[in-house]
Design a binder for these strands. Structure first.
Lengths: 139, 139
DNA sequence: ATGATAATGAGAACGATTTGCGAAAAGTCA
DNA sequence: TGACTTTTCGCAAATCGTTCTCATTATCAT
C-alpha cells in the first residue's frame, strides 16, 4: 500500500521538491475511490490547501505520470481521468449511464494482444482497452 | 464496396441535402487509404472543391458519424482520425514511430470482452482496443 | 538564516472542435 | 423555370481542456 508518507519519500527520491501543493494532490489521488478528472482533483486539493492552482494540478499530474506514479486515462467524452499507479495492470469498463469506472484484468486478452501484434510484426509498447456498457435494466 | 454514387444515394436516404461540399468530403473518405484527421480531410476536399470550409468538414463528419457512415477514432495525440464505416468491425494497432494505423480483428478477443462484461453485470455498447507498438529494429 | 534554483498562481495562449449568424444553395411545387 | 421554404454554408467568434509565460514565492542544501 502507498501511505502519504511513502509517496512523499518517493517524491524526494525523484529529486523533486516536496511542496504543500504536491502533497495535497497526492493525498487526493491516494484517497480517491474513483477516477477523478483534473477539475475534480483541483477542487478536492483546494479543500486541503486553497492555494493549489489549476496550473499546478496539471503540472503535477504530468510529472507524476512521467514518473510512473499516476496513470492518465483518456476515456471518451471530456477530459482525462487519473488514478494512482502502483497496483497491477488493469483495463477499464465505463458505465455509460453513471460514468463509473470499473477495473478488470484478463490474462487471456493480454496474451492474445501480444500474439496479434507479433503476427503483424510489432512489439506492443502499451495498449488501451476500454469497454463502454450499461447495466441491463431490471425488468 | 461503396461507390461515390452509392454514398450519395445513402445521403439522400438519410433525408439530408446532397451538396458539393458533402460529396467532396465523402469522396476524400472513400479514396483515403489511411485514417486522416479533420485537417487532412479539409485539405484534400479543398483540392476537389476549394469552397469547403473547416466548419463544414466538422459538421459533415459529425453527421456522418451519427448516421453510422464514418467512424471517429480518438487515438492518443492530437486530433481524431476518421475512416469510412461499412467494412467489418476491427480494432487498431498504431505504429508509434510512423503513426501508421493497422487494422486487425480477433473473434477471440471480442468474445472474451463480452464474457468479462457479462460477469461484471454489463452489456457492452461499444469498445475500444488500441495497441501501440513499434516494429522491432532489424539487428 | 541565506542564497541558488525550482515551483507556484494568475491569467493569457493554445489547438481542436463547436457554434451563431446572415448569406447562399438545395429541394419543392406550380 | 421561377418563387418559396428550409437546409447548409462560410466566416468569425466562442468553448473546452490543457499548456505556457512570467513575476513572485517557497524549498532545501549550505
Amino acid at each position: 500500500m502507498n501511505t502519504d508518507a511513502q509517496l512523499e519519500t518517493d517524491l524526494r527520491a525523484e529529486g523533486v521538491r516536496v511542496t504543500r501543493q504536491r502533497l495535497a494532490i497526492l493525498h487526493v489521488l491516494r484517497s480517491a475511490a474513483d477516477h477523478p478528472r483534473a477539475e475534480d482533483i483541483l477542487a478536492r486539493a483546494k479543500e486541503q490547501d486553497p492555494s493549489v492552482s489549476q496550473a499546478t494540478v496539471y503540472r503535477t499530474l504530468a510529472m507524476l505520470e512521467k514518473a510512473g506514479t499516476v496513470l492518465k486515462n483518456e476515456f471518451d467524452g471530456a477530459g482525462a481521468r487519473y488514478e494512482l499507479a502502483g497496483g497491477a495492470h488493469h483495463d477499464h469498463l465505463i458505465d455509460l449511464d453513471t460514468g463509473e469506472v470499473i477495473e478488470f484484468h484478463s490474462q487471456k486478452i493480454e496474451r492474445l494482444q501480444a500474439e496479434i501484434a507479433a503476427e503483424l510484426g510489432y512489439d506492443i509498447e502499451w495498449h488501451r482497452l476500454e469497454l463502454y456498457g450499461r447495466r441491463p435494466k431490471a425488468r
